[in-house]
Simulated scan of single mutants.
Amino acid sequence: MAHFAPPGPLGFGGAPLGNMFDVVDEATAEGALVAAWESGVRFFDTAPHYGSGLSEHRFGAALRAYPRDAFVLSTKVGRLLKGDPSHPDNPPFIDGLPFRIEPDYGYDATMRSIEDSYQRLGLAQIDIAFVHDLAADHLGDAWDEQFAIARTGAFKALTELREQGVIKGWGLGVNLTEPCIRALEQSDPDVFLLAGRYSLLNQPALDRLFPMCAERGVHVVVGGPYNSGLLAGGRNYDYQDAPADMIAKRDRIATICEAHGADIRSAALQFCAAHPVVAAIIPGAKKKERVEENARLMAATVPPAVWQELKAAGLIPDGAPVPA
């Protein structure tokens, strides 16, 4: 069975426009979204969590300028926003909107979350709903308990909405492969948003999750193809300071790319997109210049010798698909 999947290979991820790590002004945020559209991007992903609603507001304001049937939009459920004039902290987002985040994976909360997102976006159609961070740190040891709540709550609600035609598909938006595997075993998702678990540096999704997805006709959106910036020249990996072994691995990959006149950032994006189950990748970007650069990097030539050497050096698995 083939499930609904967003268009790719390049999409636009909305976390940076929720003031992730840095404040982004309205004009810059709009410019980034317009640049994405003009670069051919037709898949946009956001979430209530990003800036306590700020990212959704910005996405809706920009995307309302375009025909609604010309793009695919995803947002997330699992975290309700409750008004709080004290502007509570919502790290890693800075200076977001005055709302408090309340995790809730229940049925009623999921239905409420979709309705709230309509209001923030100013759009009457959400194509994909991801259950957000079902294995995140805020759950602690309650992971199994919360998954059970989601299975009879959020999963049930989103399946009903899909059957009614309200949404076209649903899945999980997570940083771990395990909840995706369990969702495949216990429910009928369409697509996963998996951040940081399939990249040039790290491929835990390759051995079990991706084959299960291929068997079920489920697709994957890859978030974090630069691994929090390490593959784009930064020093962060998995949302924190990069460990020495990952910096060394990044440097070895970069040396091979440079020897063949290739940009490691092109290799990072194109490697993620090459797997057959991957429908789209969503590198983060705050400014139009970075959006345009990602589009150029996605289209740039990476010689076949790069992939051959990376495999020969054991830097990527022999079984990993690479661009033809």
Rank of each mutant, 00 (worst) to 15 (best):
N175T: 07
L310K: 02
S55E: 06
R265L: 08
L209Q: 01
G229L: 04
V166E: 15
R182C: 02
L200M: 09
S55L: 02
G14T: 00
A29L: 09
R68I: 02
V77G: 05
A65G: 15
H87V: 02
P243L: 09
A242L: 06
A280E: 04
Y198A: 03
A320I: 04
Q125N: 08
A268Y: 00
H219S: 04
G196D: 03
V34K: 10
K82M: 07
W170P: 05
V221M: 06
T28I: 09
P225Y: 05
E145S: 04
S187N: 02
K311A: 04
V302F: 05
R79T: 12
V191D: 00
K288S: 14
Q240I: 14
L123V: 13
V218T: 05
N19E: 12
A279I: 01
R151E: 02
A262V: 08
P91F: 11
L206E: 05
L269T: 10
F147W: 10
R58T: 09
P88F: 03
A279P: 06
G169C: 03
S187A: 06
I282F: 07
V191T: 07
A267I: 07
I181N: 00
D108I: 07
V306I: 08
H87I: 00
D127H: 12
K156W: 00
L134D: 01
P85T: 10
Q308H: 14
Y226H: 13
A32T: 13
G224S: 09
D245S: 12
L81V: 15
V278Q: 14
C180T: 03
A62H: 08
Q164W: 02
Q270Y: 08
F71A: 10
Q308P: 03
N227C: 14
L80H: 06
G40K: 15
A305K: 15
L231A: 03
D95R: 15
T159Y: 04
P321T: 06
G229A: 06
D137K: 13
S199L: 01
W143P: 00
F43C: 05
A195C: 14
A279F: 04
A61L: 11
V221K: 12
